[in-house]
Write a protein that binds this DNA or RNA. Structure first.
Lengths: 256, 256
DNA sequence: CGCTCGTTTGAGTTTGCTCAACGTTAGTGG
DNA sequence: CCACTAACGTTGAGCAAACTCAAACGAGCG
């Protein structure tokens, strides 16, 4: 516990220019002197905790957020008083871009575990962006990246069956961890099975069964929330193009 | 045929400032004199025809497109040499925003029927945007709207069953037609059943059966591609919140 | 006219959901 | 510190929504 707090204090103190996540974050592509201007805007509040809400669906867009340590999920209100999990955010990933220009948040952001999160007030950010073309470009870039990530999700939900979905989810997490310098083969899931099932459009039981199956097949080693990827190649193959496996569910077409 | 061509010539000749779609299109929110600057960029080529490709996945982003008459679909390459239909575009709707900032198209755009389409060269557009904040804002707005539309799709694919999906699709189309001044209750589907099924993540047969069922239930009148909505209220209720209908498939959760 | 493509309908199969019961973890209060 | 409880996770059995396969029909086109 005490050890953890030390880590947080340190990560909170880190300035953008020294932050290992800078290139993937808002400062990406900015000149050093420009980063300092951006830096001045960033608020680094105390750590957030599991269940904390960064913002709610419908609220005016006061700030954007970037995960520094920990993780966050975003949800949209579903039809049946149920929320749909739309995304998980890991260190270095910006949250709240979907609300830009509507000037209010389209989703609700919930912190999944004790996390350090940078807060960037929105209006000052856009004002700075008008004077810094590189920042403008980075905003476009991040927005467009979010769009493409969602397209991937559309593909997953529209075309893939259960095993492919979970495999895709795990390889995606693995890659994102790896890109941030963390272990790509061994990590802790900060979200519950419920969140995963909700995100992937499956039942909780299906997720549970798949974890068991993947472990039995020697793909993973699962201990509660601790995941160890034993055969990333097979996992990736399972997630994407089922080359060897039985090609099920072909319901699309090329031309009209 | 001849009659159609006349219509096209006229619609092509229309300048942005006289275009009925202007407010929903790029000029939205711009001052009249600024619209003229934008206007100067727009290329209005000859009509496109069914099957024509506006751009392909991976190509450098040379221009954005806006449907003036007709319709377009966008697809992403799936895993099994299959394409996933990601969206349909009706008059007034901009195409290609997903490629902004990556500077190359993330999707392939195929024309569904004979269509008039405005082409706006990308570089000049962004240059103009740096001098016109209102245009900048409109670009953000359109980008963000696309993002939210995709979120709706995620909800559809993740939570809804077959009948809800088709009902959602039809009410969405209806609203979009209505917003453009066209009939919201009677319209022609320019896309094939295949495209619809692909888009909605269902099998073609399911779509076909659902059309039959909706007609039998008195919701629609279906003749080939001609759709007439007889009971839009019931359709909307079916599409969104199944209040009365059996609440099936509850697999999500609020908190983590 | 005959071809192909798109659509419809039927029959059977299967994936993944539902319901249910049980085991485990973590958080709370005595 | 431990008992208790609620939330989370796992596992099994049965079912049904939607898929696959198959076949027939109509429309559009060369």
């Amino acid at each position: 516990m005490t050890h953890r707090k030390v880590i947080f204090f340190e990560s909170i103190r880190i300035a953008c220019k020294n932050c290992s996540l800078a290139s993937a974050c808002l400062p990406g592509g900015l000149a050093p002197e420009d980063v300092e201007q951006l830096e001045a805007l960033v608020e680094r509040s105390r750590p957030f905790h599991r269940g904390d809400v960064l913002f709610r669906h419908g609220e005016p867009l006061r700030a954007l957020y970037v995960v520094k340590t920990g993780s966050v999920k975003t949800c949209a209100p579903g039809m049946n008083a149920e929320e749909q999990v739309l995304g998980f955010y890991l260190p270095g990933e910006p949250i709240g871009l979907g609300g830009i220009a509507q000037h209010c948040h389209s989703r609700t952001a919930r912190v999944l575990e004790t996390s350090a999160i940078c807060e960037i007030p929105y209006l000052p950010l856009t004002q700075l962006a008008t004077t810094l073309p590189a920042l403008q470009r980075q905003l476009y870039h991040l927005l467009s990246r979010e769009l493409n990530q969602q397209s991937e999700m559309l593909l997953l939900l529209g075309r893939k069956h259960a095993a492919e979905r979970l495999a895709t989810f795990l390889t995606d997490l693995s890659q994102r961890f790896g890109r941030r310098g963390l272990s790509a083969t061994e990590f802790t899931l900060s979200m519950s099975r419920h969140d995963i099932s909700n995100y992937l459009g499956l039942a909780v039981e299906t997720i549970s069964r798949l974890f068991s199956r993947f472990q039995a097949d020697g793909l993973l080693q699962v201990d509660r929330k601790q995941i160890k990827i034993l055969n990333s190649v097979a996992l990736k193959r399972l997630s994407g193009a089922p080359v060897t496996p039985p090609p099920r569910r072909h319901r699309s077409h090329q031309q009209s």
